[in-house]
Design a protein around this nucleic acid. Structure first.
Length: 489
RNA sequence: CGGGACGUAGCUCAGCUUGGUAGAGCGCGCGCUUUGGGAGCGUGAGGUCGCAGGUUCAAAUCCUGUCGUCCCGACCA
């Protein structure tokens, strides 16, 4: 387009517009062209296609194994919630009412009572817990459910905010507040670990301000990731519900001292929104870059077949079998396409490692391994590896790629986490979407509202003040916490 | 929900101002030549112009409504 600058390079993947030009355009192109999702003929809903499902399954696996390891079990509760049940916890109702979808008819008959399609399941699960809990001996209850939920959102985007979405929701009940608080902290740490160690998305862990708190919770904690446009994305939450829900839904138990007490409950969730974070954080102008631990396909073999040569095909199939036997999530691409098409296709899909195998390689007894995290032509981007060593080399390379992607994302977050001491600078950063702006803060809703009105930024979460007492950078009142401000998705 | 834009082939879009037989590129099928970064030539298929009304002899084009998508805000545990 530009006539004065150096001629633009032909993009390696032509379906994807430049990421830096318009993140939203880029994001949607990646989601659709890489066949993660399709828009469905239902407002605000997407179809999760096989490759997108593959990503979700990786995330599920990472979370589920950790839930099990921390003593949780899976269960499943109904999709529909009777209206009268939903109404019992006042704050909860008020928080969710505007986005609840309702079932009003069964067949042709109007229902006596409307049924809510669950926007979250505290209500129905709490009701069941009330039935199941009699004694302190019945506690704790540590249950997770994998489910879909529905929230009638005004504006939707694939993964980040859809009317129906997939998530997991953990719901636990405990005899004491201390135990509940420990549970909430434990699960928040599980989320941090999965975000950072599996998705390679660095996050900021902290407590939500009172205005950002879950409807009906006493404390809400979150992990917050930073997107390339400087907006924050809440990637998971973990809530202390105090005894609010236990009181509303009558979860009572006889304690050891024979007193009747209300349980302390928690809930915590991560959704497919995490995939949206992963896509935005790691993707580039060629499309997705999937961290190996999340990749449905870790390595794709592209045989470069010329004419009638059977040797390459046979060698590629042998290598494929070897990789599979070694436990590598490998794919052999024998489609009748030219190599260049396959290269860009798999790059767009973010497969971490490409293995090129052609006549030249066979002659040399090697395969050519190409890292997706490297730019084309970059040092170490292409590696010739003796055929017999390929399977053994891959795990190390995948580790390197995982580490590299995390390091790049970490550098971005660190480079865009700003600590400001000056009010004017603080407000400017908030307004300009410079990243996470970390300040001493008074914690008052009025102060947060004022900052929001002026800059569109709010607190994403907060951490303890430490020894550094002093004034709130935003308003000058005494600070009570350190807060991360940013505009958010 | 307020402001704006858009909806035409699988994809990206032109055509609409000034109504008159539906277009391009890419993709797709077939044939041949090709194949280490998105091939070439030939040939073929593919669209009730989002949907519903209205105006008109005639509507992709003008009008109204509606649904959907995107952008900016508001909202969003």
């Amino acid at each position: 387009m530009s006539q004065t600058d150096a001629p633009e390079k032909t993009p390696l993947v032509k379906e994807i517009p430049p990421k830096a030009k318009d993140l939203s355009d880029w994001y949607q192109a990646v989601c659709y062209k890489a066949e993660l999702v399709s828009l469905a003929p239902v407002r605000g809903c997407v179809v999760l296609r096989p490759y997108g499902m593959g990503l979700w399954e990786r995330l599920q696996g990472a979370l589920d194994s950790r839930f099990k390891a921390t003593g949780h079990e899976n269960a499943y509760f109904p999709l529909l919630i009777p209206e009268s049940l939903l109404m019992r916890e006042a704050e909860h109702v008020e928080g969710f009412a505007p986005e609840v979808a309702w079932v009003t008819h069964g067949g042709n008959e109007k229902l006596a009572e409307r049924l809510a399609i669950r926007p979250t399941s505290e209500v129905i699960i709490g009701t069941m817990y009330a039935e199941w809990v009699q004694s302190y001996r019945d506690l704790p209850i540590l249950i997770n459910q994998w489910a879909n939920v529905m929230r009638w959102e005004k504006r939707t985007r694939p993964f980040l905010r859809t009317a129906e979405f997939l998530w997991q929701e953990g719901h636990t009940a405990h005899a004491t507040e201390t135990e509940a608080a420990a549970e909430v902290a434990q699960m928040l740490e599980v989320y941090r670990e999965v975000a950072e160690d599996i998705c390679a998305v660095p996050v900021i862990k902290g407590e939500k301000s009172s205005t950002e708190r879950f409807a009906g919770a006493t404390h809400t904690f979150s992990i917050e990731a930073l997107m390339p446009d400087g907006k924050a994305l809440q990637a998971a939450t973990s809530h202390e519900l105090g005894q609010n829900f236990a009181k509303a839904y009558d979860i009572k138990f006889a304690a050891e001292d024979q007193s009747i007490r209300h349980a302390w409950t928690t809930s915590w969730g991560m959704s497919w929104r995490m995939l949206g974070a992963l896509i935005m954080v790691h993707g580039d102008d060629r499309g997705l870059r999937i961290p190996p631990k999340m990749a449905p396909i870790e390595a794709v073999i592209v045989p470069i077949v010329r004419g009638e040569s059977e040797d390459v095909t046979r060698a590629a199939r042998d290598l494929f079998a070897t990789l599979r036997a070694a436990g590598i999530r490998a794919k052999l691409d024998e489609r009748d396409l030219r190599p260049g098409n396959k290269f860009s296709d798999w790059e767009m899909r973010g497969v971490p490692l490409r293995i090129e195998l052609g006549a030249k390689d066979l002659e040399a007894g090697t395969a050519t391994l190409v890292r997706r995290d490297k730019e084309k032509g970059a040092e170490g981007g292409k590696i010739a590896v003796p055929l017999a060593d390929v399977a053994a080399r891959i795990p190390g390379l995948l580790d390197d790629i995982q580490t590299e992607l995390y390091a790049q994302a970490r550098a971005f977050l660190d480079g865009h986490t700003l600590s400001d001491t000056d009010r004017a600078e603080f407000l400017a950063h908030c307004k300009n979407r410079s990243g996470m702006v970390e300040i001493a803060w008074c914690g008052r809703p009025a102060c947060e509202a004022a900052v929001k009105a002026e800059t569109s930024a709010t607190t994403r979460n907060t951490r303890p003040l430490g020894d550094a007492a002093g004034p709130c950078v935003a308003c000058g009142e005494p600070a009570t916490v350190r807060a991360y401000f940013a505009q958010s998705y």
